[in-house]
């Protein structure tokens, strides 16, 4: 039975959940821990937290948000934003992150991928790839889509796999926040090129978009942000699609009283 994870993605800034369009024009949505708890109880398989201002230390930081969430939410969490060195990843793992995502630092210093994998294991080493379509190719961007790296998404995905990454979180910037569907060509190109799991994100705005992803690609998961935060789709809608498409869906079991 196909196993495809539904992952709620929470972009945070100074301790608040935010959401934008194509990674620009951010708006505050609410308290990230509250949203995380609600999604976990409704059946999301994992959570992704990304700090858009990369503020790992200081006040109102990702670490505070993470600690607060990890004390009340009991599904796995991938956390990223501002991780530049091994010590940063270690800080996040000690505060409740199960996996640490890196983007900018990996493109600037690819050896960090090897170092993270050797130190914390492939299973904790997640590469976030933000890609934008350029003709028939996709270019890797950093800093929420502001800066070009000169890397091609497919080639970069293969490289990080070789360097020991355990998962790729792939976001299409050109479809992100639009709610008009994912870039299935991009998901296919990347997931066919690697043997590690690929989480597809950017553009899910309707349950049918999940059906299309399941049928058209080898994605191991989908990350959903805006559509969930604004209530356009519910976790139950997405779980219904998984059932209808023959994917396994975890039962919701309450913890002991």
């Amino acid at each position: 039975m196909r196993n495809l994870r539904v992952i709620a993605r929470l972009d945070v800034k100074m301790g608040k959940l935010i959401k934008g369009v194509q990674m620009e024009g951010w708006r505050k949505v609410g308290d990230p821990a509250e949203f995380a708890e609600r999604y976990a109880e409704a059946g999301c398989d994992e959570l992704i937290f990304m700090d858009v201002v990369a503020s790992l230390y200081g006040r109102n930081t990702l670490v505070d948000t993470l600690k607060e969430t990890a004390s009340r939410v009991f599904v796995p969490m991938t956390v990223g934003g501002g991780v530049r060195q091994l010590g940063d990843a270690e800080t996040l793992l000690k505060c409740g992150a199960d996996k640490v995502a890196i983007n900018t630092a990996a493109t600037q210093n690819p050896d960090l991928v090897n170092a993270m994998s050797e130190t914390f294991g492939a299973q904790a080493t997640v590469i976030s790839i933000e890609a934008v379509r350029q003709g028939s190719d996709w270019h890797v961007m950093t800093d929420n889509g502001r800066n070009k790296t000169g890397l091609s998404a497919v080639a970069w995905a293969k490289e990080v796999e070789d360097r020991g990454a355990g998962e790729i979180v792939l976001t299409a910037i050109h479809t992100e926040g639009m709610g008009k569907g994912l870039d299935l060509d991009l998901v296919r190109a990347v997931s066919d090129a690697v043997r590690i799991p690929v989480i597809a994100g950017g553009g899910l705005g309707d349950p049918d978009h999940l059906s299309a992803l399941i049928r058209g690609t080898q994605a191991s998961g989908v990350s959903v942000a805006q559509a969930l935060h604004w209530g356009r789709v519910s976790m139950e809608d997405l779980r219904d699609v998984l059932r209808a498409e023959g994917c396994s869906v975890r039962d919701l079991v309450e913890g002991p009283a």
């Binding site: 196993n3 492939a122 299973q123 355990g166 590690i196 799991p197 191991s220 998961g221 396994s248």
Partner: peptide, 19 residues
């Protein structure tokens, strides 16, 4: 066991909820 004759390849790490 990633490669098993007669079975489709599997992605490793195994990540997710399983019965």
């Amino acid at each position: 066991p990633e490669a098993v004759p007669g079975l489709p390849p599997m992605r490793v790490p195994i990540i997710g909820w399983h019965p």
